[in-house]
């Protein structure tokens, strides 16, 4: 029997995990929604989803004793993907409700979108709830191979729902950028086998599903090389 791609979708009591689960199943992964650190440790990959408030999410992760298992998993070299709030949680801190410490896997701070566009003084609708473009960072021709964005067109539309964005990130870890409300910000991050997306690939149609398919390929490759 061929080995299945066992993916833990971390359940910390926030957000709708259903669509992440369905997208994983649709592309042929074997996902499980869990908050059990043993299950997480033994899986081939981890997805940290999430919608909602940063502080509540961190409190829940701490209550469930999931902070260390997630950081350990990130250090293990096995693939990991953060989506939406799940991306923000991987950063150093958030300015939501004063300042809240994050998991610190990527350097960066979550900032709120300005309510006035600094370029044209027009009102900005916050949260951003729309499809928006993801752009290849300056100086590169296309999205990096060996990442889930491999083969996605430059400026492809993805579906975004958020009020906070990643700021002060390391330039070399930026996988894509996006413009909203006069701010050009980092909409996906990558280092080693860790990926983070501010948009929802599981809500971004066929192109979003490509990201899940690519993630599955990365998991399989990693499994091969660890044998």
């Amino acid at each position: 029997m061929s080995r299945t791609t066992k993916v833990s979708i971390i359940d910390y009591g926030i957000g709708n995990l259903f669509s992440v689960l369905k997208a994983c199943e649709y592309v042929g992964m074997n996902p499980e929604i869990t908050n059990n650190s043993k299950v997480i440790e033994s899986s081939d990959a981890v997805i940290l989803p999430g919608v909602g408030a940063f502080k509540d999410a961190m409190i829940n992760l701490e209550k469930l004793d999931l902070v260390k298992p997630i950081i350990d998993f990130a250090d293990s070299g096995k693939p990991m993907m953060g989506v939406c709030l799940g991306m923000q949680l991987l950063l150093t801190e958030s300015e939501e409700f004063g300042s809240t410490k994050g998991l610190g896997i990527f350097q960066g701070v979550c900032k709120k979108f300005p309510i006035i566009n600094p370029l044209n003084n027009e009102k900005v609708k916050v949260p951003q709830i729309t499809w928006n473009n993801i752009t290849v960072p300056d100086g590169i021709n296309c999205f990096k191979e060996n990442t889930p964005l491999n083969g996605i067109n430059n400026n492809e539309h993805m579906y975004f729902v958020h009020s906070f964005y990643a700021d002060s990130v390391k330039e070399e870890e930026v996988l894509s950028t996006t413009n909203y409300g006069g701010v050009e910000y980092c909409s996906s991050l990558n280092k080693n086998n860790i990926f983070a997306f501010q948009f929802h690939p599981e809500k971004s149609g066929q192109e979003g599903l490509k990201i899940y398919r690519n993630f599955k390929d990365i998991i399989n490759k990693t499994n091969e090389s660890r044998k």
Binding site: F18, K22, A23, Y26, Y159, E202, K203, S204, Q206
Partner: peptide, 8 residues
Amino acid sequence: TAENIFIP
């Protein structure tokens, strides 16, 4: 619908 439709 949510089984195989991946938009909001």
